[in-house]
Design a protein around this nucleic acid. Structure first.
Length: 553
RNA sequence: GGUCCCUUCGUCUAUCGGUUAGGACACCAGGUUUUCAUCCUGGUAAGAGGGGUUCGACUCCCCUAGGGACUACCA
């Protein structure tokens, strides 16, 4: 009997495996202070980076580094069916782009760093097998040859009978099978999964503790869950326990979809004889759909995919600040008091993390934050970053920006550097193209209808005279005040009030007010009715261009 | 069905038994500006419902309702 049991284990794991003791030695406890946190983010590489993944990464990284700790990127690629090649690299790269630096695991150069690796679960098979073999030897796990069909049938039966579904208790038939039966199944070429022989009782209540949710009572786990799939790879649950123990993770920060598995995970740690990490289960970012909230979903919501923000051209720090805002609502107070401080200096508090069931994603708030952030940038930065964006997503804009970078820089600097109130009208790089369009001559036109609109307000011949008079005194060097004074003189000469108050006081005395004259210039120069400061625009455009456009009347 | 979580302005949230329930975004109105974007001032707007406990409840307890998660050889 005993011999057969050994034989079974040998047939299951013929390879040479390290012992648990050796692994303990190879991955020793980190010599860190009590308060230091070791955190990790553990995405599964299924083709894209989820917005929520960035959120969890941000929180984990900040907490680790605020405590002089370690932040790890581990790749959970145990589901070979869903894996999409290159996602691990994409994740590492994205983290880096958003300024989230991991100390261990895959870095943005696709190198693995750190002494607690490998950090890809598919490369850790020997480690998982070592522990599974050990559990098998101790009789705490067993092979199960139940087929998918059998399990399906079991589920159906349980459902109709009103039983809890799952592989547990009297339903866990392979738990009771003899070693010989297992060997026979093996002989027939069947590939088993390995199940945990759960010592739990569903009737027992255990206390679980979560940093965000608090202490809660939950039933003990009695499910003989699969710890190793028939392809030899571990399931999430088992890999989590092994990896977070061996990597010496102190705090597991993850989505609260895992909260129901907590009794199971605690049981795994206990069976393996390890101290469980501290858990913090994060509420997922949600979206409203037909009046109901639901998690952001890759399939339905483009904003679930991080690449959406890149393509739309939101600056990375805007996304980060939005996320910080969701994480700690006092972030915006901090931001008001520290206008120019890097958000890295904000101290993130785990305690202040919302306990709600998940905030709704708010694109408008992101936009607002983004406008503030871009407004603070200088022209060089705006040029450089919009150019980087344009090269990837808008070739025409890139060409335009590069055609005369000094000119582009001047355009982007209008009402920016040195301005008391810098413009806050750009929220994403994708808006720059339209914003600066009219400064370039290649396809500049004034729509006929627009021209007509102003010529209905100012009679055409008079408009010509106004332009003539204006150009006769206009000097490109004129500052704001001089410029406007001259405009007023011209306006008044032609029967327009010099300011709105005068006009309003006696509208009958005037044909209009100086704003109407400005509108004439604005339309001829830019082809639109709303632009930044006209004087500044003209200075940037230059004497020749201004004259040419104004004479196009 | 079972287990568990959640519920304050439209949205994100503050309040940790005594507040005119505060802020931010959004929205509306007024003001400043040559237009717009700003900026300034003001405004609309909230404790799911019902029971307790208490001198007093958004806050503590219970019930109901609504929403969410999990219930795989997916994570």
């Amino acid at each position: 009997m005993n011999n057969n049991h050994d034989l079974l284990i040998k047939r299951l794991f013929p390879e040479e495996l390290p012992s648990p003791a050796e692994l303990e030695k190879k991955y020793p406890p980190r010599s860190l202070a009590e308060t230091t946190m070791v955190t990790r983010v553990a995405p599964s590489p299924t083709g894209f980076v989820h917005f929520g993944g960035l959120y969890a990464s941000l929180i984990s990284e900040r907490l680790a580094h605020q405590s002089s700790g370690i932040f790890i990127l581990r790749i959970e690629d145990t589901d070979k069916k869903r894996e999409v090649a290159g996602t691990a690299e994409l994740f590492a790269h994205s983290l880096k782009q958003y300024g989230i630096i991991n100390d261990e695991g895959l870095n943005e150069k696709s190198e693995e760093i750190g002494n607690y690796g490998p950090y890809k679960q598919s490369e850790r098979s020997a480690i998982y097998h070592a522990y599974i073999k050990d559990l098998l030897q101790q009789g705490k796990a067993y092979p199960c040859f139940a087929t998918t069909e059998e399990l399906e049938a079991l589920r159906n039966q349980q459902e109709t009978m009103g039983d809890r579904s799952g592989y547990y208790g009297r339903f866990a038939t392979w738990r009771e099978k003899s070693t010989e039966e297992a060997l026979a199944a093996l002989d027939k070429g069947f590939k088993p999964v390995i199940r945990l022989k759960s010592p739990g009782n569903f009737q027992n209540k255990i206390m679980v503790d979560d940093l965000l949710i608090g202490k809660r009572e939950m039933p003990e786990n009695d499910q003989d869950i699969v710890i190793m799939k028939s392809d030899g790879l571990p399931t999430y649950h088992f890999a989590h326990a092994v990896d977070d123990h061996l990597m010496r993770t102190t705090h597991v920060i993850r989505g609260n979809e895992w909260f129901p598995s907590l009794p199971l995970h605690l049981q795994l740690f206990s069976i393996l004889g390890w101290k469980a990490p501290v858990y913090a289960h994060l509420a997922p970012i949600q979206k409203i759909d037909n009046g109901n909230k639901r998690k952001l979903s890759k399939r339905k919501d483009q904003e679930a995919d991080l690449s959406y923000y890149k393509k739309a051209g939101y600056p990375e720090e805007a996304v980060i600040e939005y996320l910080l805002n969701l994480a700690n609502s006092n972030f915006e107070d901090w931001r008001r008091e520290h206008l120019d401080t890097d958000n890295g200096e904000f101290v993130l508090s785990l305690k202040k993390l919302a306990k709600s069931n998940g905030p709704l994603f708010d694109l408008i708030k992101l936009t607002d934050i983004s406008k503030e952030i871009i407004a603070k940038m200088n022209a060089d930065e705006v040029l450089e970053r919009s150019l980087v964006w344009a090269k990837e997503f808008d070739q025409d804009l890139a060409k335009r920006l590069e055609s005369d970078t000094a000119y582009s820089r001047q355009i982007l600097n209008i009402e920016r550097e040195g301005a008391i109130k810098p413009r806050k009208d750009i929220s994403r790089w994708s808006e720059i193209g339209e914003e600066i369009e009219y400064f370039y001559d290649d396809d500049f036109t004034v729509e006929a209808s627009l021209k007509q609109e102003i010529l209905n307000e100012i009679e055409p011949n008079q408009a010509k005279l106004i332009i003539q008079d204006f150009l006769s005194t206009y000097n490109i060097e004129d500052g704001q005040e001089e410029w406007f004074d001259k405009l007023k003189v011209v306006a008044e000469k032609h029967g327009y009030a010099g300011n709105n108050k005068e006009y309003k006081a006696s509208p009958d005395k005037y044909k209009g007010q100086v704003g109407t004259v400005a509108k004439l210039l604005r339309i001829l120069l830019t082809g639109r009715t709303q632009t930044p400061n006209l004087c500044a625009i003209m200075q940037v455009m230059g004497q020749k261009r201004v004259e040419k456009r104004l004479r196009e009347i």
